Computed example of a mutant assay.
Amino acid sequence: MIGFVINFQNSGSPKYIQLYEYIRKEIELGNLKNREKLPSVRMLSKMLSISKVTVENAYSQLLVEGYIESKNKSGYYVMEFEADELGQFKKHLKAIEPQEIQALDATLYNTDGTEENAFNFSEWKKAINLVLEYETKALLSYGEPQGELCLRREIARFVHQSRGGVCKPEQIIIGAGIQYLFGLIATGFKNDFLKVAFEYPGFSKGMVVFEDYGYQMEKIRVEKDGIDVKMLEASGARIVYVSPSHQYPTGSIMSIKKRLQLLDWAAKNHAYIIEDDYDSLLRYEGYPVPALQGLGEGEHVIYVGSFSKLLIPSLRISFMI
C-alpha cells in the first residue's frame, strides 16, 4: 500500500498508540486487506513526520495482538482473516475503545511476595483509618454475600478503564482467592457439564479444584498463539480455562484471530470461557492487551481477576464477572 492519512491528536494518548489504533481499526473494517504489505518503518516514519521508534512501537503492539506478521527481509503484512471473522470485528468494534484503556505503571515482583518498598503502606493506613472513622457501622455486619457494593463499583470501573471489560457491579462476585472462585464456578455448572478443558501446560491448582468436584479433565495443548481451538472442539468440553493475555507458564499471548475463534466456539456450542487475567497489567513495554471478555461484549466469558500481583498476595482479593 501507499501509506496512511492520520491526524495525530494532542491528547494524553502517545502517538504510537494513536497509530496502533488507526491501523487496527483499518484492519477490522476491512480497509487493509489480508496479506497486504504495510509501509516500512522508515517509509512511514518519513511520511508521517514521526520517529522510527514510534512506528516500531505501534507495529510491535499489532504484532503482539496478532493483527500483523513480520516476514524476515520482507516487511510487515496484515494477517489473513476469514470473512466471518471480519464480520465479528465489525460487530464488536465498539466493545473496546482502546483510548479508554489506561496503561498502568506497575512494579514487577517475584512470585512469592512483594518487595518491601513496592507497596504504599502509608496510603493503605490512611484508607483503613478513614473506614474506622466514618464507616464503623458497615464493619459490624456480615456484609453483602457478593462483596461490598462500593468495592464492586470500583472494580467494575477499574476493569472497564484498564482492560476494556464490559460489566456492572451486580455481575461481580468477590472472593478470597482465585481457587475459591473456581469452586463457585464448579458448583454452579456441576449439574450441566461433565467435562472441563484447561490449557496444557497450565494452571495446575485450578485443575485440581475442578477434579475435586468430579469433573473430567481435558488438557488442551497451547500453541504459539494460544490454545489449540480445533483440539478443544474435538474434546467435547463446554467449559474452558484460558489465560489469553499472559499464558501461564509459557508467557504467550493469544492472537486476535484465535480470540475470535474461541468466542465463536463458545457461541456455537453454548459454552463458557473462564478468562484468567491474573497479571496482564504487568508489562515491560507496550500496551496491555484488551481482555477477551470485552471483545465478546461479556457473553460466554467468565472473567476472573486478582489483586495479588498488583497489590500484595496477603490481601486475598479476587473477583469474577
Rank of each mutant, 00 (worst) to 15 (best):
L108Y: 09
L108E: 13
A58D: 06
V131Q: 13
G296N: 07
Y284C: 03
I317T: 12
P14T: 03
Q102L: 15
M254T: 14
Y180H: 08
A186W: 00
E26S: 07
E123T: 07
R316N: 15
L315W: 10
L282E: 11
P249K: 04
S51V: 02
F198P: 13
I321Y: 09
Q261I: 02
K137R: 14
M43F: 08
R35G: 03
E170C: 07
D228I: 02
Y284G: 12
A127I: 07
G164V: 00
P313V: 06
V209A: 00
G236I: 06
P290H: 05
V301F: 14
T114P: 02
S308I: 00
P290F: 04
V301T: 10
Y284H: 09
Y284F: 09
M79S: 13
K25P: 01
L19F: 10
I172C: 10
P290C: 11
P98C: 10
V55A: 05
Y213D: 00
A271D: 06
H92D: 12
H160G: 13
A197M: 11
I256S: 01
R163I: 01
N110M: 04
K219C: 11
L315Q: 05
I128F: 04
E65D: 14
Q161R: 12
N191E: 15
A267T: 13
A266L: 06
E115K: 12
L151D: 03
P98E: 09
E65I: 02
F193I: 11
I185H: 07
E299M: 08
Y200V: 00
R42Q: 11
P288F: 09
N269A: 11
F307E: 10
P169G: 05
E36M: 07
M79G: 01
N34L: 06
S280A: 13
R153T: 07
G298Q: 12
M217I: 15
